[in-house]
Write a protein that binds this DNA or RNA. Sequence first.
DNA 1: CTCAATACGATATAAAAATATCGATATAAA
DNA 2: TTTATATCGATATTTTTATATCGTATTGAG
Lengths: 223, 223
Amino acid sequence: MEAKPRPDALPLPTIRRYPVYLRAVRARRARGEANVSSAALAAELGLDPVLVRKDLAMSGVAGKPRVGHSSAALEAALEAALGWDNVSDAALVGAGSLGRALLGYRGFREQGLSIAVAFDGDPALDGLEIRGVRVRPMKDLVRLVRRLSLRLGILTVPEEAAQACADLLVAAGVRGIWNFAPVQLDVPPGVVVQNMDLAQSLAVLSHSLETAAIPSPARARRP
Amino acid sequence: MEAKPRPDALPLPTIRRYPVYLRAVRARRARGEANVSSAALAAELGLDPVLVRKDLAMSGVAGKPRVGHSSAALEAALEAALGWDNVSDAALVGAGSLGRALLGYRGFREQGLSIAVAFDGDPALDGLEIRGVRVRPMKDLVRLVRRLSLRLGILTVPEEAAQACADLLVAAGVRGIWNFAPVQLDVPPGVVVQNMDLAQSLAVLSHSLETAAIPSPARARRP
DNA sequence: CTCAATACGATATAAAAATATCGATATAAA
DNA sequence: TTTATATCGATATTTTTATATCGTATTGAG
């Protein structure tokens, strides 16, 4: 129970880099490149070649010396590792400006994500269709999410409402919450929360600006 | 007041946690708590108490046993470390749905950020005022940004346009770019780029969901 | 006034991640 | 063929980050 048998033990930083690799691989494949070398990827992305090689090796696809990795195999393996190989439907809670921006983002399809339904507490929005997605009142949330068997919730409500909405999503049976509100959500075990905090990202940037010309840890410039 | 011999050698993860601490401290101070203990913060945020104590210690404010840290001093120190103590003006490039969402986000003020002007390539938007911010055509970017001495650019354009817009911002003299486009920007040394990549965040979430009920590395369950 | 409990500070250990190094192998050029 | 070289794969080292432990100071209760 407390043992970790072996649940795809990919390091977290590696997972975070996978979407970046995936985009680059897709672009190269679209350009007709049948093979991709870790060195070329590293150069393109400004990363250490050894790091890229190790990350790619963990995806399970082997590379051939002097050739690289099969770009088709790589793409499939990265998608599988991320769980992006089959589209999963999500519920969006909060149809404010941020919620609408997400509804309008086409890139989600390439990331195995599709927003099936949206909810908002504002009665004025009830029934409205935004980018092909219908907005429903909050009182229908639990019932609808459960009926559609949605496993993922996207939370784009003001921070005061965040915890209450999270509770509803949990009650409806979602297993993951993508949280855009700057709040630490309290959820039962088994439910995964991933925070998307603008402030955290901005913090790194403004601190870097403050401390003048330090060699930025996020980006290395080298010849 | 002078308790800061070493201005800036903060670890990156610490910086990322600072906004979280800052929010909690502000909330407690608003509730009238003159002092905050690291243990209480740790409990509230689900973090290890030792970690919080170390992070706070690095801000330079000392705490007193049995009492905690002065919440006013903490707030000031955290803001200073983040460079959020004085508001800096930014230019937003790309007044699409995401750009508008950011324009409408009031929280930026508390994070020392104010959007002074927006730019968009769509002539239809020229002259429009969104949330009190005027939208200007791209051709005016370099001139206007330079005249306003803006040091920060926020990039919310489609990925095809991202690099070109970044080049304009650099030409206009910005020192930092907050990049919402899923592209690795190429900028000269001295310019800091902070990527805000939805895909990277989503990756962690969907991978966690895939690998079922592993003890999530991102969140610890507290009592 | 004494004592116990709380919370800080410092040091030590462990875990995780990034980086460096070396050898092996397949391809392309000579 | 032979040889040079790009590239993978594995191991080792260093660096960074997180956790654990201990000591000490301050407060509040008895």
